[in-house]
Design a binder for these strands. Structure first.
Length: 837
DNA sequence: TCGGTGCATGTGTTA
DNA sequence: AACACATGCACCGAC
């Protein structure tokens, strides 16, 4: 979706617009500023490029539901339309395209308060978040100030009337705060400003809950100008220092922490918490946010925004239950999804730097300080809050968390939520279990798939572990209160930082299939002529080189029933129709299209239109999905690979329904196969008991016998050649290249249909896509080919070839060939050599 | 040898 | 390019 500045004299593209991401004017989150020309727009479309704190909420004009425009959560409810506007998935309707219009603002409309704020901007190079925001728009700040005001008023019209007055009041309060902030910002704390913004969770939470959107509206309106909260007041114990009696770096609780004493320039974090973003689809319940205690980061950089992944998503109800005290205020600080390291035995919980510096006591020494954190059961834990120097920065960790983690039975993927109880400033650590914390990947998958973290719908640790006195909210409460969790936000939380996680489920399944598909791409070596052998009037090709990967094609069926093969040109990406039996080399272009002279050039038009192509591709994808599903539905234990299935079925064809038949039992002596391998070789006991009888007519035996006959003929011919009688190709053994597909079809005739399909493209019956060590099946093939015959015989329990020859027919020996079904005749030759011996 | 500690490194994210 | 952070790994002490 292109984003173009609508100012005709500007027409800046996305870059210019998005460059301002994070710094642009945010009036209710519905404004975007073009820094190229200074135009500002009210355009919800652009909101998607903004972070949560920069965008805000939006109401669907059609369904009345409030949706968050700008965080990824909106994607679950919205589609941003290419031409602008928002399509609300909830009501399946589209909003009218939001006008993208420059807003002209007169300089004299600038409120004084804003003037003060911006005047303060340059006073401190380590400006506050607000200042940063504002500084980024210096050239148009006046416009923007006006715009902010105008937009606030405008956006209010989007909300139900009851919200208006309070929203306005809220807005007014915010402006007041801004003014106060601008005047008393540095080094003095913010007396009198505490809890002015975004009502903290308190005893009135129920009331606030009922006021749908009110507080959120305040946030929304506050965001453009004050999307942060203020520091702990000097006259309250609302700090993060340990509770009374605890000493941290010589400071006592009621002492003013250094960071509040102007030790550093105050940095005000964006409001990090969008707690309990409950999108009750009916009531649109949106839990309230809360005040934030902000603290300047040690480095004093401007990047003090808390990443959304750390925004605590906890409801006021949960918080209330944590505190158990109607008079207390729970301030969610941040949360973190436990990584493997965090949840491991090392006992170190890596803290997000911004969070650590914002909400934890400042530490100047690497050793850090002990801090006490109370869990939701009321048990108090002492951790060492410290940091490691890291690339000129710091890496904050909580040490000694193992007991606590174990106590909470947390694992990687679960979430710990740090909150603070005010007054008192006591830290509280709650948690939220992932639905399937055993498998973090699964939780991620779930999270990504649903757009809502599985953790959100699972039982919150807060709930599970609440003391009885708190009322013990049930899971049902939670389930009725699905949190609005931005899809992207959650993916950030886990997905984007999970590169080292194990892969399971669909991803891995997809890879497996990919591997299986790779098998289908195997092609005969292009430069090697096959040797055609006849087995009972059937032609088989054998190659002296291992197969190569060919170009992938798509097969479709016409209405007439004819099948068509399509291939994409590597140069022009156009799709060309090919005969069904064509096998393409890895690189193929239109120039190689010898089957259609009208389309043997890249300049030739496409034979299929885009719709048809899309249909083709969709069919391909669906086919793959179907295979994934089918695979997933098959228990792993009984899930042979396609090739194994072929081999198994080939054997069981004669013994189907009698899996316990020892004659079909796998052996583990094949040199290249593991115990349990069901390939055509391993299932054939090398000798002695369990061996198929000479009268056996199972598929394996029949195939082996056919091969023996063919090889016998071949040897005779080679012997003749060796005698100088170069007879050339005989009539019945033409040295021609036979299309493998035809042969494959013939082979299919000898194999049950389902098996043949499963084993399509089989070139190596010994390959098992499901086995990691068979991933390099071809490599193992080559490796096995180099195994000395003696080793093979030894491993197969054939002590002596001579004895073997005496006791068995040659054909029976053939039945033990390790590479039955393989096409590499290098192996064949070795075997032949062995036979001659 | 094992486990804890501290730092280094690689990778993903953001500006 | 800089930063954040997950994790690897060397080092060291206890057993």
């Amino acid at each position: 979706m292109a984003k173009i500045c609508m100012n005709e004299s500007c027409r800046a593209t996305t870059t210019a617009l998005e460059w301002k991401k994070g710094w642009g004017l945010k009036s209710g989150g519905f404004v975007i500023l073009c820094y190229n020309c200074g135009s500002t727009y009210e355009n919800s479309v652009y909101c998607e490029t903004f972070h949560l704190e920069e965008s805000g909420w939006r109401e669907c004009k059609l369904c009345g539901k409030r949706i968050h425009c700008g965080c990824i959560a909106s994607k679950s409810l919205h589609d941003y339309l290419d031409l602008g506007g928002v399509g609300c998935i909830s009501c399946a309707k589209s909003l009218e395209t939001h006008l993208v219009r420059p807003i002209q603002i007169q300089k004299d409309d600038i409120p004084n308060g804003y003037g003060l704020l911006t005047a303060n901007k340059n006073s401190d190079p380590q400006s506050s978040f607000v200042e940063n925001r504002m500084s980024g728009i210096s050239s148009d700040k006046q416009k923007l100030m006006k715009l902010s005001k105008a937009m606030d008023a405008k956006e209010l019209n989007h909300f139900p009337q009851p919200w208006k007055s309070e929203s306005n009041a809220c807005n007014g309060k915010i402006k007041r705060e801004e003014i106060m902030l601008s005047t008393g910002e540095v080094g003095t704390g913010f007396p009198g400003l505490i809890q002015l913004v975004g009502p903290s969770i308190s005893a009135k939470s129920e009331n606030s809950r009922q006021k749908f959107g009110l507080t959120d509206m305040c946030e929304l309106l506050a965001q453009p100008s004050l999307s942060f909260s203020l520091s702990t007041p000097l006259d309250t114990p609302n700090s993060l220092v340990p509770p009374p009696g605890d000493v941290v770096e010589g400071r006592k609780q009621n002492k003013i922490p250094p960071f509040q004493q102007g030790q550093r320039t105050r940095h005000i974090l964006p409001k990090p918490a969008k707690i309990g973003l409950t999108i009750g689809s009916e009531e649109n319940n949106i839990s309230v946010s809360q005040t934030r205690v902000a603290r300047p980061p040690a480095e004093g950089r401007g990047r003090t925004q808390l990443l959304p992944r750390y925004w605590p998503r906890i409801t006021d109800q949960e918080l209330q239950q944590i505190s158990g005290d109607l008079n207390s205020t729970i301030v969610p600080l941040f949360e973190k999804v436990l990584s493997a390291s965090d949840a491991g035995r090392i006992g170190r919980l890596v803290l997000p730097k911004a969070c650590a510096e914002a909400y934890f006591p400042p530490i100047s020494q690497s050793e850090g300080v002990p801090i006490r954190i109370q869990d939701i059961k009321g048990k108090e834990w002492t951790f060492q809050f410290r940091f490691w120097p890291n690339n000129n920065s710091r890496m904050y960790v909580l040490e000694g968390v193992t007991p606590c983690i174990q106590n909470m039975q947390l694992q990687a993927g679960d979430t710990v939520i740090f909150s603070r109880i005010d007054p008192g400033g006591k830290l509280v650590m709650g948690f939220r279990k992932a639905s399937n914390s055993v498998d973090m990947q699964d939780s991620q998958t779930s999270s990504l798939a649903n757009g809502v973290s599985s953790g959100e719908t699972s039982t919150s640790g807060v709930n599970d572990n609440l003391p009885t006195k708190h009322g013990g909210r049930t899971n049902e409460d939670l389930s009725q209160r699905p949190m609005l969790v931005p899809e992207k936000k959650r993916s950030r939380n886990i997905g984007s930082k999970c590169k080292r996680l194990l892969m399971h489920s669909e991803d891995a399944m997809a890879l497996r299939l990919t591997w299986a598909e790779a098998q289908e791409l195997l092609r005969p070596p292009p430069s090697v002529k096959p040797t055609v052998v006849m087995v009972e009037d059937r032609e088989f090709e054998e190659y002296e080189e291992p197969p190569v990967f060919g170009k992938r094609t798509i097969f479709t069926a016409r209405a007439s029933g004819d099948q068509v093969q399509w291939a994409q040109c590597d140069n022009c990406s156009k799709w060309r129709r090919l005969p069904m039996d064509v096998l393409l080399p890895p690189k193929w272009t239109c120039l190689n299209n010898i089957w259609d002279s009208s389309r043997c050039s890249c300049s030739a038009p496409d034979e299929i239109n885009p719709n048809e192509l899309e249909s083709l591709l969709r069919v391909g994808k669906e086919s793959k999905k179907r295979r994934i599903t089918e695979r997933r539905n098959v228990p792993q234990e009984s899930e042979p690979s396609g090739l194994d299935a072929l081999a198994t079925a080939a054997v069981l064809g004669a013994d189907a329904g009698d899996p316990d038949d020892p004659s079909a039992g796998p052996t583990t002596k094949h040199p290249r196969h593991r115990p349990g391998c069901t390939c055509i070789v391993c299932i054939q006991p090398p000798s002695g008991k369990g061996r198929h009888k000479s009268t056996c007519i199972c598929n394996v035996c029949l195939t082996v016998k056919r091969r023996f006959k063919t090889r016998k003929k071949k040897r005779e011919r080679e012997a003749e050649i060796a005698r100088g009688k170069d007879l050339g190709p005989t009539k019945d053994e033409p040295e021609v290249h036979v299309n493998p597909l035809k042969e494959e079809d013939k082979i299919k005739n000898t194999i049950p249909k389902d098996v043949a399909e499963t084993g399509k493209g089989q070139l190596d019956l010994n390959c098992d896509p499901n086995r990691e060590d068979d991933v390099l099946g071809l490599m193992s093939l080559v490796h096995a080919a180099n195994l000395p015959l003696e080793m093979y015989l030894r491993q197969n329990g054939i002590a002596d070839l001579g004895t073997c020859l005496l006791s068995q027919t040659v054909g029976e020996i053939e039945s033990h060939r390790p590479n039955e079904g393989c096409v590499s005749s290098s192996i064949v030759e070795r075997e032949n050599h062995g036979d001659e011996r």
